[in-house]
């Protein structure tokens, strides 16, 4: 049980980078971008093939990021210069990327278990720090018999995701970032303040897909393979993370919202892991579970809010009635 949860958190933190990308388009730009399903695989494919050809893993991961950025820019171009509807430009790009990804990989699945990946490199450095034995010692002292093999991935990913989050927070507060946010908020207004909304949309969708592809490259290195179908349903996982996170942690400031998205990505993984342990649910039910999760986090907060509001009103009415009774005033 502990181990499967540990694994859920571990991959949740990597997927959180993808979710941050989805947050950029879906929330900041108000651009429902479906390129994600394709660009995630593009990232995985570019990282896998680069590593197999002897490119250092860190460089391979950055190449994945650049590939995603380019894919996103094309979606942005389709929408702004080609005047194609946002959903349709995403779908078109996603479809085109499927073939491109297959070209990059050359076959549906490429595995590279034996190659040196970013995580293997990190692990070899990590082992020397002695954190593993310390953490596992702590765990066994509280009575856990099964301890994780390594804390390296969770540790280093926590750091990388946090850096990505802080960079995103910073960017969204810069002059360019403010203009980008205003583009998603009120295009007419930001144009009257001399911002080129077309280039901002292209930049925003590009950055979003850069993060998605970066996450794809890391997931491929984590699992040791890249598969042309590994991106199917990725956008809905991203949306689930954003929506669940926002429902639980709130969105008062940008820093809070990006933290919420990371939290949402981890919680999503944990819930799915838990759900799959229920006897009658199978792996194939995962998409259904995701859909139900998203629906719940969209509908429940609204229901709770309206119930709270009703309660507040009935209490107010009760108070007034009591006061009237005390003063001896009757409606009659």
């Amino acid at each position: 049980m502990f181990l499967s949860m540990f694994g859920a958190v571990e991959s949740g933190i990597i997927y959180a980078i993808m979710a941050l990308g989805v947050y950029l388009t879906f929330r900041i730009l108000d651009f429902p971008d479906l390129t994600v399903d394709g660009s995630f695989v593009t990232g995985a494919a570019v990282a896998a093939i680069s590593i197999i050809h002897g490119v250092p893993p860190i460089v391979a991961s950055l190449l994945a990021l650049v590939a995603g950025f380019l894919a996103g820019c094309i979606t942005g171009l389709l929408h702004t210069k080609g005047k194609v509807n946002p959903l349709l430009s995403g779908i078109l790009m996603m479809t085109a990327l499927y073939s491109i990804n297959l070209r990059i990989l050359d076959k549906p699945t490429v595995s590279f278990f034996n190659e040196t990946t970013f995580f293997k490199q990190v692990q070899s450095v990590w082992e020397k720090t002695g954190i593993d034995s310390l953490m596992n010692g702590l765990l066994s002292s509280v009575g856990l018999t099964q301890v994780p093999k390594t804390w390296a991935i969770i540790g280093v990913m926590l750091m990388i995701t946090l850096i990505v989050k802080l960079l995103t927070d910073f960017f969204l507060k810069t002059e360019v970032g403010l203009a980008l946010r205003a583009t998603g908020d009120n295009k007419k207004m930001i144009r009257s303040f001399s911002a080129n909304t077309d280039s901002l949309i292209i930049l925003g969708v590009g950055l979003s897909n850069a993060l998605v592809a970066f996450a794809g490259g890391l997931i491929a290195q984590h699992g040791g393979f890249a598969d042309v179908g590994m991106g199917i349903g990725m956008i809905i996982i991203g949306l689930a993370s954003v929506i669940i996170g926002e429902a639980i942690f709130g969105t008062k400031t940008i820093a809070r919202a990006t933290l919420a998205v990371i939290g949402g990505a981890i919680i999503y993984r944990m819930v799915v892991t838990l759900a799959l342990r229920v006897d009658f649910l199978e792996t194939g039910d995962m998409k259904l579970i995701t859909a139900v999760l998203v629906i719940a986090s969209l509908v429940l907060p609204n229901m709770l809010k309206s119930r709270k509001e009703k309660k507040r009103r009935s209490e107010k009415r009760l108070q007034i009635e009591l006061r009237r009774k005390k003063e001896g005033v009757t409606d009659a």
Partner: peptide, 20 residues
């Protein structure tokens, strides 16, 4: 303040420095 910062950078190139 963010809205005012947007208005302030109307006559120049927007940069990667804090708006507020």
């Amino acid at each position: 303040e963010e809205n005012l910062a947007i208005a302030l950078s109307r006559c120049k190139k927007r940069r990667l420095t804090f708006g507020v």
